[in-house]
Design a binder for these strands. Structure first.
Length: 334
DNA sequence: CGACGGATCCAGATTACTTCA
DNA sequence: CTTGAAGTAATCTGGATCCGT
């Protein structure tokens, strides 16, 4: 079971997503085994926000050829998540099999892996194993970043003494990571290591960057959704106010001039579903969906008192503008 | 087959640092 | 030069899942 609240295009300016791609889904259901893992993958991939954008079967590698013209090394394809865990094909060979548990220790291992890729933590330029000829920009950037980071990276390597030096990723590194993120908001271990290798970063840094990036995306999306819902609320409040006013006007009119009291009883009927008054069965029939389909022209308002014309005016623009107003429950009224 | 513990990944919250007005 | 806000890299914590025993 899933309850979906579609927010329409107003909330999807981000990332150029199509309006129909934004769904605030409230998923309710049992999760077991693979389902749970699948959900995790989907959520991690941002499926909660642009589910339709996420292909059911993510491509094997990140395509990074767009702006930076970089490619993934010719690595073997990404295995299925379950297979990933089955036999650690995605673990870097340099990671010791018995490697250990906490993220700090994992980080250490990854440092080891990174060190295996890089002749020296601070030796950025020469450590790029990929053919980046013609892409000296990134290479230079990585070299520059390596140079800039040399102190912090060194402090990472020498115990750091709990001092947390914060490096700043270079523009090109960020751009490269952004490109990767556009392709996949999550990384498998191989991709992580390859990306780290390309950017001369530690895999842990790449992992952290993706985690933070996902968090930022979600935050931004939440803010946009909140903003949109606020606007919807304002519009609905205004609509409610207007309807109340209209109702009081009608009541006043009724007291002052109860014209329809003189009408034959059969010509007035209250629609049970929308609680509006239909002037006569013919009109009601004419306004039925089928009749409307065949005859789009609304009943001539001038045939009814002006207040009725207002009452039976064509459907107003729904406050949730981008969304087509859902058809009312079985009703003969407009 | 189920229980258990280790490994891993992730989200969310928070901290610490950098940059900039 | 100082300062506060914003941005973000890094850390911590807890939950979920997988896998081997």
């Amino acid at each position: 079971m899933e309850l979906g609240l579609s927010l329409g295009e107003a909330a999807v300016a981000d990332a150029g997503r199509a309006p129909e791609e934004l769904l605030l889904g409230l998923g309710v259901g049992a999760r077991t085994g693979d389902e749970g893992e699948k959900r995790r993958r989907e959520v991690a991939a941002g499926a909660g926000w642009w589910a339709s954008a996420a292909s059911p079967e993510p491509s094997v590698r990140l395509s990074l050829v767009s702006t930076l013209g970089l490619r993934w090394p010719a690595e073997t394809g990404r295995s299925e998540p379950s297979a990933q865990r089955g036999f650690d094909v995605n673990r870097t060979p340099s990671v010791a099999p018995g490697a250990a548990g906490t993220e700090e220790r994992e980080d250490d291992d990854e440092d080891g892996a990174a060190a295996a890729f890089s002749s020296s933590p601070n030796d950025s330029g020469g450590s790029f194993p990929l053919d980046l000829s013609g892409h000296g920009r990134l290479e230079a950037a990585a070299a520059q970043a390596g140079g800039e980071r040399s102190s912090s990276r060194a402090s990472d390597d020498d115990d750091g003494a709990s001092a947390r030096k914060k490096l700043r990723l270079s523009k090109d590194q960020s751009a490269f990571l952004e490109e990767s993120f556009k392709e996949h908001s999550t990384l498998n271990p191989k991709q992580k290591v390859a990306l780290a290798k390309q950017l001369n970063l530690r895999p842990r840094q790449v992992e952290v960057w993706f985690q933070n990036r996902r968090a930022r995306t979600k935050l931004k999306q939440t803010e946009m959704d909140c903003e949109y819902l606020k606007r919807c609320c304002d519009t609905l409040t205004e609509e409610n106010r207007r309807l109340h006013k209209e109702l009081s006007e009608l009541r006043a009119l009724k007291t002052a001039q109860p014209f329809y009291m003189n009408l034959p009883a059969t010509t007035l009927s209250m629609c049970p579903s929308c609680e509006r008054v239909a002037s006569n069965p013919a009109a009601a029939a004419a306004s039925s969906p089928a009749a409307r389909a065949s005859n789009a022209a609304a009943p001539a308002p001038e045939q009814r008192p002006s207040s009725f014309a207002a009452l039976f005016a064509s459907p107003r623009g729904f406050p949730l503008a981008p969304q087509p107003r859902p058809p009312p429950p079985a009703s003969n009224c407009l």
